[in-house]
């Protein structure tokens, strides 16, 4: 209010002495003072709005992370736990199947070695050797098959590794969003004009949208985590390829 006092006084005096030029000049001065005040108020409102928008951007990102991506990550880690558990049990099952076969072959071989050294007639040994070789062929085929499956079972490391990488990317994103929030809170409501923070926020949102890029891949499909229509196994893939004319 005080900024208008000189102009109001000047207008009052010009009116009293009947000086229209002085009155006009005082009126122009009063108008300028009023406009300056309005401009300053508009600037303050704009600055406040910018700060609010920035907070809203970070807030909406955090809300999305908290509501969707963090629960997804929990499902993903639970799936990794199941993958590693299944793989460890399958590997141990296969090893447990192989051990008695190896023991059996070793014991039969030891018996034959002992029999070879005895003075008993050789004819029964020949039959035993024949039976042993037959047994060895069958057992070794089973051991070989189990070893191949043990090898394939190690594929869990690739799948779980891809999932862990995506959870690490989420933790990165969460850290950046929280960092922004802390910076904004620390700078106060009036500090919404920091151009550097604007640039950072833009880059983050770009990185965020890029993480779901089809060209780079989404990683393994995790039960309970929705990534759009997905195939459920090789048969689905083959059906789709067949539909596409392959």
């Amino acid at each position: 209010m005080q900024q208008y006092t000189p102009w109001v006084t000047a207008m009052s005096q010009a009116l009293a002495v009947g000086d229209p030029e002085a009155f006009g000049a005082a009126l122009v001065g009063f108008d300028c003072a009023r406009n300056c005040d309005v401009t300053m108020r508009v600037r303050l409102v704009a600055s406040g709005l910018q700060g609010a928008l920035k907070r809203f951007h970070v807030d909406s990102k955090l809300i999305d992370l908290a509501h969707h991506q963090v629960p997804d990550a929990r499902h993903q880690l639970a799936y990794v736990l199941r993958l590693t558990d299944d793989a460890a049990h399958r590997t141990m099952d296969l090893v447990e199947q192989c051990c008695p076969l190896a023991d059996q072959i070793a014991h039969q071989a030891e018996r034959l070695i002992a029999a070879q050294g005895s003075v008993a007639p050789q004819e029964p040994i020949k039959a035993q050797i024949g039976q042993f070789l037959k047994q060895a062929a069958t057992s070794m085929a089973a051991v070989r098959s189990n070893l191949s499956e043990v090898l394939l079972t190690q594929g869990y490391q690739d799948l779980s590794g891809q999932i862990i990488r995506s959870v690490m990317a989420l933790v990165d994103e969460l850290e950046r969003a929280l960092g922004h929030l802390v910076r904004i809170a620390g700078a106060g409501a009036g500090a919404g004009t920091d151009a550097g923070t604007d640039a950072d926020t833009g880059a983050d949102s770009e990185r965020g949208s890029g993480s779901g890029c089809t060209a780079r891949g989404h990683g393994p499909s995790v039960p309970g985590v929705d990534h759009g229509p997905a195939v459920r196994g090789q048969q689905d893939v083959d059906d789709l390829l067949s539909d596409l004319g392959m």
Binding site: P229, A230, V231, Q234
Partner: peptide, 22 residues
Amino acid sequence: AEAKRDQIVEAVQAGVNGYVIK
């Protein structure tokens, strides 16, 4: 391990000869 249907379609369009899912 990429199992989205649109990804498989994209791979076919890019000229893949076979697609095996992990």
